[in-house]
Design a binder for these strands. Structure first.
Length: 275
DNA sequence: GTTGACACCTGGACGC
DNA sequence: TGCGTCCAGGTGTCAA
């Protein structure tokens, strides 16, 4: 399930392969992935566009083309494969970008949750998706006052950390890790967080995501950043996915609970304090 | 305005 | 072995 470090790794990997390649045709095998515009215009507008750059905002990949920007969200299982055009099509390769060098860029998504939008460049900044996104973890405006204002809520901090309109890019795995290293109980209400809690969240978010990027992201189920290359940060996870295993710090057993609809892992001893 | 439930999807784990 | 059920999770939408 790609979060910020996984999307960043995928972005860098794609940049090494498809920059300056021209799209000569697009094949769509699952229409629901395309959110805007309609299928016919999506194909038409992409034809003869060159991929000039690839950037990222939160968990969104942004393909910078001549006249348009292609936004791609991988959601749970989305992946991109770069393959020779004659390579047999896999069952879940739903969108095929035919490139001018006889290669394909193929979007693969087992659960078909991923989404794509194609916009004119001038419309990007005001597009409803981007106007709702919060701050990048390394944004200088991410400070205690910003979080104090945004976390003014009765919702548990675990839920607030997953809210992309506050900090972009944090998903379920890294939210658990950030709260563990910050010593914060995931049930603690946003409005009850102290300045020290907020500072710990800011610092640990940067540290953990940076380390995860260095390790190529986290592979728990199916994430790969190239056809067969998994990340390695899963070997460094302290709590996520470690139900009933011993805490690295205190040896207490890691618990798994549900907060909202999300599985949440935490150490009941290191993350005990609620207020 | 806030919060929770649900839909979108498939594959894997599990119980019978 | 085979079948049915549940669970995983990011985000948008809708209802309370």
């Amino acid at each position: 399930m790609p979060e910020l470090p996984e999307v960043e790794t995928i972005k860098e990997n794609l940049k090494s392969k498809i920059l300056n390649k021209k799209i000569i045709k697009v094949t769509i095998n699952w229409n629901n992935i395309i959110q805007y515009p309609d299928i016919s215009n999506f194909k038409k507008q992409l034809t003869n566009q060159t991929i000039n750059d690839i950037t990222r905002k939160g968990k969104w990949l942004i393909f910078d083309l001549n006249d348009y920007v292609l936004l791609s969200h991988l959601r749970m299982e989305g992946k991109y494969f770069y393959k020779e055009k004659d390579t047999p099509l896999l069952k879940h390769e739903h969108i095929i970008f035919h490139l001018s060098n006889n290669y394909h860029l193929r979007y693969h998504d087992i659960r078909k949750f991923g989404k794509m939008h194609l916009l004119k460049k001038k419309d990007l900044d005001n597009y409803y998706i981007f106007s709702k996104l919060g701050l990048d973890p390394w944004d200088n405006n991410l400070n205690i006052n910003y979080l104090k204002n945004k976390f003014k809520s009765n919702l548990p901090i675990k839920t607030l950390l997953l809210n992309q309109s506050i900090i972009t890019g944090i998903g379920n795995i890294y939210a658990d890790e950030i709260l563990f290293y910050s010593g914060i109980n995931p049930f603690k209400k946003g409005k009850d967080l102290t300045d020290e809690d907020l500072e710990n969240i800011i610092n640990n978010t940067k540290l953990i995501l940076t380390d995860a990027i260095k390790n190529g992201g986290t592979t728990i189920k199916s994430y790969v950043f190239d056809e067969n290359k998994p990340g390695s940060f899963q070997n460094k996870l302290a709590v996520h996915g470690r139900k009933n295993k011993n805490c690295f710090k205190c040896n207490e057993k890691i618990l798994k609970v549900k907060i909202g609809t999300r599985g949440t892992y935490f150490c009941p001893k290191c993350q005990k304090e609620l207020i």
